[in-house]
Amino acid sequence: MPEPQTDRTGAAVHITLDETRTIGAYTVSTDDGTPAGRADFVDPPEADGERIFFHTEVAPEFNGRGLAGLLVDEALADSIRKNITVVPVCPLFARRLREHGDAYTADGGRFRRPRPADLATVELATKGRA
């Protein structure tokens, strides 16, 4: 299990990567294993080395602890480590890259604006998922 991180309350949380499904996710859980949130993505089959982040969610009982920011930061850092181009459809990812994109690219990260085909890829991947 990866090293724990600390949320705004000082509590330990764990962020893990789940790539076992069509829709992958970075998930955050409390130190006791309680799921707290996720940042969902799809890897488009036609664009090797790209990852479309389209939804980030934290359970209401964990609001205010900074978990969404931890998820976004870990996903972006992991994208740098894996040389993946980020496509930010999720508003949280888009805002983070709008505000800190220069620093992200200076650290070796790559991202590009979403295109209509990216939205179609997300729609296809999430079809039937309610």
Rank of each mutant, 00 (worst) to 15 (best):
A47G: 01
G69I: 09
G37D: 12
D43S: 15
G49Y: 03
F62H: 13
L67F: 13
P45N: 11
L67G: 10
N63Q: 13
E57A: 14
E50M: 02
D48W: 01
P45I: 10
P44D: 07
G69L: 10
V58C: 03
N63W: 09
A68I: 05
V58Q: 04
A47W: 02
F54Y: 11
D43F: 00
E50D: 02
D48H: 09
G37I: 08
E50T: 10
G49W: 02
G37C: 12
F53W: 07
A47I: 00
A68R: 01
F41C: 14
T56V: 08
P45C: 01
P45V: 09
G49M: 04
P60H: 04
F53G: 10
L67T: 13
H55C: 07
P44A: 10
P44Y: 02
D40S: 15
T56C: 06
D40A: 13
F62Q: 05
R38K: 14
E57D: 14
F53N: 09
E61N: 10
D40Q: 13
G69K: 04
V42Q: 06
P44L: 04
G66E: 03
I52T: 01
F41G: 06
V58H: 08
A59F: 13
P60A: 13
G64V: 03
L67I: 15
G64A: 10
A39Y: 07
E57I: 13
I52M: 03
F54L: 07
A39L: 14
V58G: 12
N63K: 04
E57M: 11
E50Q: 08
A47S: 04
D48L: 10
H55K: 05
D40N: 15
A47Q: 04
P44F: 10
D43L: 14
P44I: 08
E57L: 15
F41T: 13
A59S: 12
R38G: 13
R38M: 11
H55N: 14
L67N: 10
E50L: 02
D48N: 07
E46L: 11
R51L: 00
D43E: 15
L67S: 11
F54H: 09
R65C: 08
I52G: 05
P60Y: 07
A68N: 04
H55I: 06
A59M: 01
G49K: 01
E57Y: 15
D40R: 10
E46C: 00
E46G: 06
V58L: 05
L67M: 15
I52K: 00
G37M: 03
P45L: 00
D40V: 06
D43V: 15
G69W: 05
F54I: 08
P44T: 11
T56E: 01
P44S: 07
E61M: 10
E50C: 06
P60Q: 11
E50K: 04
N63I: 06
E46D: 14
G49A: 06
E50Y: 05
P45K: 12
E46V: 03
D43G: 02
A39W: 01
F62I: 10
T56M: 07
N63T: 13
A47P: 00
I52F: 05
F53H: 12
E57H: 14
L67E: 02
R38C: 02
F54E: 09
P44E: 01
D40I: 01
A68P: 00
A59D: 15
G64K: 02
G37A: 11
L67H: 04
I52A: 07
G49D: 00
G66I: 01
F62K: 05
T56Y: 01
A47Y: 09
A47M: 05
V58R: 04
